[in-house]
Structure formats: C-alpha cells, structure tokens
Write a protein that binds this DNA or RNA. Structure first.
Length: 816
RNA sequence: GCCCGGGUGGCGGAAUCGGUAGACGCAACGGACUUAAAAUCCGUUAUCCGAAAGGGUGUGCGGGUUCAAGUCCCGCCCCGGGCACCA
C-alpha cells in the first residue's frame, strides 16, 4: 500500500482545516433552525479520563449528526472549576488552588482539541473567574431580597481532631479520612435556598418532559416525594407544649403505642437534664456522621424519656422515647409509632418489648398475626372504635375532619424535598455575598460592590478556610450603616455554578447582565448529555435555577433541557472510574498510539450510551483495524479512477443487492443516530456495509458506481463518530466540498424493494424449517408452503393439526 | 435501609412493537503470504450428541401467562448508580 493510514497526519490536518474555517463558531441567526447541544461540563482534574471521552464523544456525535441534518448547532465547552480536589492538591503539594486549576484547564483544553470535538471555543467558560461567579452572587442577593434564601442551623460532619467540616466522601466508615477520628454531627448556621417553594412546579412539570428518560423522571418524583397526610398534636403530660407529628397514615392512629423524638428534640434535652442515662444516650447519638445511608442502616436504638403523651382520641397515655433514627431536621423531629403497620416501628417495638396493636385488617377478610409480621397494606380499620369498618380513604377523611374540628390537627401536603443548603466551609468556591453587622444583621453585598472576589494567592494548611485569617478580606464596613462589619467566609456549594452555566454559554461575555438577548435565541438546551449519577441533584437544582432566573425576568423558559441523554458510567474493575478511587485509565496513551478517531470509535462501539461500560484495554485494536480497512477500501476504489454515473434502474443480482444494503444501512443509521441514540449498532451496520463493499469484486462501470455510492454514504454517516478520517476520505473520493458542510444521505425507497422473503416454520414453537416465498404471498400460500417442507412433515406426520399461526413476512407456527 | 438501572457465548455486546437468540467486534484456533516476525487476507467458533442430515439444551434463579417469552407478570439472588458536603 503506497498510502498507509497515518492517524496523526490525517487528524491534525482536519483539525487545522476546522480551525482555519472557524467551522464551529456560531452566531445568532434568526433564519436558521437552532440546535443547542450541550454536555455536562467537566471538573478540571488535570487528566482527561474515559468517562469524559465517552460523554463528550456522544455529544459531539449528536451535534455533528444534527449539523449534517441542516441544523444551526451550538456546542460549547467550559470548566466547573471550583471544588475540593484543588484544595487537596494545595494541601498535599503546596500549589495554590487557582494556579493548579488554571494549569489543569490548559492541559485538558489541549486534550479536547486533540480529540477533535466541534466546540465553539469562543464561548469558553470558567466558573472560578469573577466575571462568571459575579452573576451568581448577584442572583443570590436578588433571592435574598425576595426571601428566597435564609439562614438556619443545620448538621455537618465534624472532625474533632482536624477541627474541620468534612464532606460525606471524606468520611470513611464513620471516621475522618485524614485524622481517622470518629466523626461527629455538629450544628452550625448555614444559608439555604428555598427550592421547596418550587416543589409543586418541579414535580408537576416533569409530566411535560417527553424528551427525558423515564427512570430519571421517576427518581426526581421520588426525591421530591409529595405526600398527603395529617399533622396532629399530642398533648404531653406535665408539659405546656404539645408534641406535633406528621403522618401519611392517619387511618392507623388507633394503633399508636409509643412516640419517638430526635436526640436534638427539646423534650429529649429536657429529660437529659434530670436523667443521666438519657443525657448519655443523646450524646452518643451525635457521635455518628450525617449521611442518610448511615442513619438508615445503623442499629435502631432508643430509650424511654419517662414522660407520656396523651392519645388524642382515647386519652390513653403512650410513652415517649428518644430514638437515633428520628432526625430533628426531617419534619417535626418527632413521630407517632404504629408498630402494627410500619416496618421500622415494628422492628423497634419487637426489640424493646413495646406493645403491637392491630388496627388494619386485609380487605379480603383473611386473618393476619401482627406479632409474626407487620401488615403494611391499606385495608379495613379494626379495633378503632367508631372508625371500624372504614377503608383507607374514608378513615383518612373522617379522622382529618375530626382534628380540624377540634383544632388539634390539619391535612397537610408534605414534601420529602428539603431546602438546598448552599454554605460550604471551604476556601475554593464562590464567596457568599453577605456582610454581618452587629446592628443590621446579615446584609447582602450591594450590586455595585459585586463581585466579591476570592483572593487567589493563598496558602492552605488543611484546617479550615484561609479566608478566616485574612483581615483584608473579612473586615469591611457595613453597607447599610457604615460600622465595622465582617464578611461571610463560607463559599457556595459548587452545584450553584453548574445550575446556570448552560444559560451563560449563550452570552459568556455579557458584563452588564447575567443573561442578555442572545439567551432568548438559544434557550432551552435542545439536547443535554451527561452522567446518570447527576440524575437527581444537578438536574433538579438546574431546573430550580432556571425558574428563579425566569421569575427574575431573565428568560421566558421554565425547563432548561428539552431532551436528556444520561450515559452510563465507565467502570473499571466493577466500580465507577474516579479520581477518588484512583482507578482512572488515561486515554492519552491510546490517542498517541492509535489516534483520536480510533478512541472515539471504540467508545461508541463498546456499549450503548445509557448502559455502564466496563473498561477493558482489549478491543481498541479492532477499531483501529476497522479504520485501516476503511481507509484501504476507499484508496483502492479511487485508484481505479472516477466512477461512472449510477443507473439505479438497470441493476441486477449482487449489484442490486449491494445497493439495497446501502439504502437499508442509511435508513438504519439515521434511525440509530436520530431517534435511538444507539451508536454501537450504527457502527455495526456501517461495518457490515463495508464488509459487503469489500466482498463485491465488480470492476464494471455499474459495479464501480454502486460501490462509489456505498462508500460515499459510509464516509458521511461515520463522520460524526470518526470525523477526521472521513474528512480526508471525502477529499480522496474526489469531492470538492468540505465534509463538515455536507448533508446527510437520503434513502431511496425504490432500492429497498424486495421480491422474495425467507419465512421461518415452527412446529409447536420450535424451529423446523425455512421457506422462501414472494413478498406478497397470501397467508394460504404461506401455510401451504410451510406444510410442504420436508423437515416440517417429519414433525407433523401422523398428528392432528390443531392450529396454524401465520405472521406474513416472519413465520408460520404449526400447533399439533 | 430506601429509590433507579443492569444480569445473554471465553469477552464487549445484538435481537427496536411478544415472532429465526448470539448481528457486529474482541479473543482463540486452523490456513495463506513471509527466511522469520509484525501487519494483512481467508476460514472455524454457544453447548452437548452425531460422519452428515439433523436433534437435545441454553438469555442470573424459581414459578406463571401465551400458539410463541431474552422481551410480559409474581417471588428471589447478585452487580452498578443515587441518598442532599465527590463532581
């Protein structure tokens, strides 16, 4: 071969062409059909990993496909640049987080360009730049004025040795990752955003997102967790204040045999003062981390407080316990326990010898033994006095009505969703624009004093934020009264930056508003691609922020992402590839060895996008081999000179067959790209077509014309996945235009027509033969042909035919 | 613990609406080319029985619906993701 495939030469030339032609820079053209194609931006960890290559390649394929379909495509890229790894690097290696981050960004940008992604780099965003975070500080101050943010105490993981707050991932088996000390729960004041104000809308509008995967919508619905229940008060003997609880099962009220409160509940604190055992228990409850998974799986412990609540219907006394599984921050910090009809209450009652009372019976009248197993179904009330015999709905209504009349309770819609705590006790984040004044309390930084710039030249020691030790940052006059005041030193959760970056890409250089007119042209994002691990938090926060921006008059759009593709993880050794786990595979080596196209092709071919992909180093070779065969096939074809014009109507035999395959493949790949996002099967179809082209050894004018048409189609259709080699081969095929400006091939329906079709014959559902019949053969002919088959005869011989099922074009099933 | 996915040859996966299980690729084996190796090309490859024709078995496990189940229903097991401070 005189002209072997050299990926590096081919790829650098194609990239230079796109750069020189500014192929991916787009403006706002009202006459064009816009398509905003976005991928979740990366954290600049410094090294590209396979998860990045996967998600960015998927998105680039979709973007390039829609461009070939004639859309005006925007595909931007940027950096989710704040976060913990930069602080860790600073502590371990003494490099300031900013310096480390900017250097990582430069490295990764280079890697992305080498992979040939079609980004509009003129819109690049970096969230740790004041030009960016200034606007989220601004939005926060607007939310502050509207009462959409507030400050309250909440629980953090406290490392008593390092004297610092730990992230959940820094807690390993209940201990601090550096100190190995047992982590404690500690309450500190933090800022919250009222996402619960939007709970109803966020829930209801999930129904208007047909372009989202169903599992993601289900997860969000469950997360928001709307429930209808009753909030009611139990008087406590000897106490002035009643104990308020929320229940979704008021029908089980007569089954209450005890109450339980959180360790931080005022009743527990009060009992602890006189009872040292309770005091010790309350202390012990705080010696655990604050993760839900820990709380749900730990041993359920509790002890009686020695006080009683009065059952609001019977007047009976029920004991009040303190329990480690009841949390102050959820609901009212107290629960009514119905051990007969709640799994956790049942388990707890069994363990502590508390009474279990059956108040619900199965609707079918069957008997159950409540001492043997808890009964969770909605049924008919029993042992409930005047409510006996009622079903769930009637009992719910009757009991709710009763308490509304007595004033002891009311119906209440509750959400599992909690307000979003955005304070982080860390340095490397957006400063929260608040100033604390002894006289004026918390004051928002005025708009003309924004941004509050994060000092970048710092030294991190690993014990708390260095901002606290910087008087020039902390000490400021109060914006309201001018007296000496202090700046907030907490920073925002990094999810805040990622909750609106998609909108900012439309106008990244706007310096007099968060968003300008250009946002109206591009929003919403037409296609959003990212990891399934973001199915709840990031996507829910973004939907919330979009609505906050809407209500601020910045946009008319409520839903930020019209279509969502959640790609599966790249796993290595059965676990998520992550910097934390240290099981990252470096794609750089593969790019150097085989080129970007091979890596892109392999990632798209190895698994369907939604499924997780277990990484293995094998198989890349096969993708490389395919590209070489592809290259050689085109070179050998063009060596024979230009092909003659195709006369489709005169084709016969294998030429007609190859042309049919070409058009079947166009139809298949169009569907796989556009509708199914099934790139692995699209690649397989292209491979099959190329195999068929290679098998055809017909150097006649008609043969060359058919082969040329097939090769041209493969080059265009594979170009979203392997754009560099296709760019080159398009030129080799003698085309004057640039492939990036071409259009997708069209299916010629007349080429798809078949005369004969093979039909499977089954006897009792087992495959026994095949017959070939005319495409339009009637059911009767089909049945007759099937029965005439020799092998079929062997199996039906001497038996009565009970039934024959004929599915035209597919099969005949003979039941004997 | 709770919520959401997944489980198909030696491996990655295909089978799109209940209708031929294993497309496409990897690996392996056999052959061609070569002094040799690499590269490339051709062939075989779920498994068991059989010389072949053909037949039995087979989509994590146990049941069920159906003429027909990888696909639908019920009950399990195992693996992955999320669980509010990793991003």
């Amino acid at each position: 071969m005189s002209n072997p495939y050299n990926p590096e030469t081919v790829e650098l030339a194609a990239q230079k062409f796109w750069d020189d032609a500014r192929s991916f820079e787009v403006g706002e053209d009202a006459d064009k059909d816009k398509y905003y194609c976005l991928t979740m931006f990366p954290y600049p960890s410094g090294k590209l990993h396979m998860g990045h290559v996967r998600v960015f390649t998927i998105n680039d394929v979709i973007a390039r496909y829609h461009r070939l379909q004639g859309k005006h495509v925007l595909q931007p890229m940027g950096w989710d640049a704040f976060g913990m790894p930069a602080e860790n690097a600073a502590i371990q290696r003494g490099i300031p987080p900013a310096k480390w981050t900017y250097s990582n960004i430069d490295d990764m940008r280079g890697q992305f360009k080498r992979l040939g992604y079609g980004y509009d780099w003129s819109r690049e965003l970096t969230t740790c730049r004041p030009e960016y975070y200034r606007w989220e500080q601004w939005l926060f101050t607007r939310m502050f004025k509207k009462g959409l943010v507030y400050r309250k105490n909440s629980i953090v993981n406290w490392d008593p040795v390092d004297q610092t707050v730990l992230a959940n991932e820094q807690v390993i088996d209940g201990r601090g990752w550096r100190s190995d000390a047992l982590v404690e729960r500690r309450e500190i004041p933090q800022w919250f955003m009222k996402i619960t104000d939007y709970a109803d809308e966020l829930l209801e509008e999930l129904d208007n997102l047909p372009g989202w995967p169903e599992p993601v919508k289900i997860m969000q619905r469950n997360w928001i967790g709307r429930s209808e229940g009753v909030e009611l008060s139990f008087d406590v003997a000897g106490e002035g204040e009643p104990l308020t609880v929320y229940t979704t099962r008021p029908d089980t009220l007569m089954g209450v045999t005890y109450m339980a409160v959180a360790a931080e509940h005022p009743l527990a604190s009060k009992a602890a003062q006189s009872n040292p055992d309770v005091a010790a228990f309350v202390e012990a409850c705080k010696k655990t981390d604050a993760q839900e998974a820990t709380l749900e799986t730990m041993e359920k412990k509790g002890m009686p407080l020695g006080i009683s609540a009065i059952h609001p219907l019977t007047g009976d006394e029920v004991p009040v316990w303190v329990a480690n599984f009841v949390l102050m921050s959820y609901g009212t910090g107290a629960i009514m326990a119905v051990p007969g009809h709640d799994a956790r209450d049942w388990e707890f009652a069994k363990k502590h010898g508390l009474p279990i009372k059956q108040v619900i019976a199965p609707t079918d009248g069957s008997r159950i033994d409540i001492d043997e197993a808890v009964y969770l179904e909605r049924g008919v009330l029993v042992n409930s006095g005047k409510y006996d015999g009622l079903d769930f709905d009637s009992a719910f209504n009757a009991i709710a009505k009763h308490f509304e009349a007595t004033g002891q309770g009311q119906r209440k819609v509750n959400f599992r969703l909690r307000d979003w705590g955005v304070s982080r006790q860390r340095y490397w984040g957006t400063p929260i624009p608040i100033i604390y004044c002894d006289d004026c309390n918390a004051v928002a930084v005025p708009e003309d004093q924004l941004p509050v710039v994060l000092p970048e030249d710092v030294e991190l020691k690993g014990t708390g934020s260095p901002l606290k030790d910087m008087p020039e940052f902390v000490n400021v006059p109060c914006p309201q009264c001018g007296k000496d005041a202090k700046r907030e030193t907490d920073t925002f959760d990094t999810f805040v930056e990622s909750s609106w970056y998609f909108a900012r890409y439309t106008c990244p250089d706007s310096d007099d508003a968060m968003l300008d007119e250009r946002a109206k042209y591009w929003a919403p994002v037409d296609q959003y691609t990212g990891g399934i691990e973001h199915a709840i938090l990031h996507l829910l926060y973004s939907r919330f922020f979009q609505r906050v921006m809407r209500d601020e008059g910045l946009t008319d759009v409520s839903e930020p992402f019209t279509n969502l593709l959640t790609q599966g993880m790249v796993l290595k050794d059965g676990a998520k590839m992550s910097k934390a786990k240290g099981n990252v595979v470096d794609p750089q080596e593969l790019i150097e060895k085989y080129g970007a196209d091979t890596v892109r092709l392999f990632m798209m071919f190895a698994a369907p996008p939604e499924q997780s992909l277990e990484w293995s180093d094998e198989g890349v070779q096969g993708s490389y081999r395919f590209l070489k065969r592809f290259w050689t096939a085109v070179q050998e074809h063009t060596a024979g000179g230009p092909a003659a014009k195709l006369d489709a109507d005169s084709l016969t035999g294998q030429l007609k067959e190859l042309r049919r395959k070409t058009h079947q493949t166009i139809a298949k790949i169009s569907d796989d790209f556009g509708r199914r996002h099934s790139f692995n099967t699209a690649v397989a179809a292209a491979m099959e077509l190329l195999n068929a082209i290679n098998k055809l050894a017909d150097e006649s004018a008609a043969g060359r014309a058919v082969a040329r048409e097939a090769l041209q189609a493969v080059v265009v259709m594979l170009s979203p996945i392997v754009p560099h080699i296709c760019h080159e081969l398009w030129q080799v095929l003698g085309n004057e235009s640039a492939l990036i400006d071409e259009t997708w091939p069209e299916v010629d329906d007349s080429a798809l027509q078949l005369e004969q079709v093979e039909v499977v014959v089954q006897v009792n559902g087992k495959l026994r033969g095949r017959v070939t019949v005319a495409v339009d053969a009637s059911k009767e002919i089909l049945q007759a042909e099937a029965l005439a088959d020799d092998n079929v005869q062997r199996f039906i011989d001497g038996k009565a035919i009970r039934k024959v099922i004929v599915v035209p074009g597919r099969l005949v099933n003979i039941v004997v």
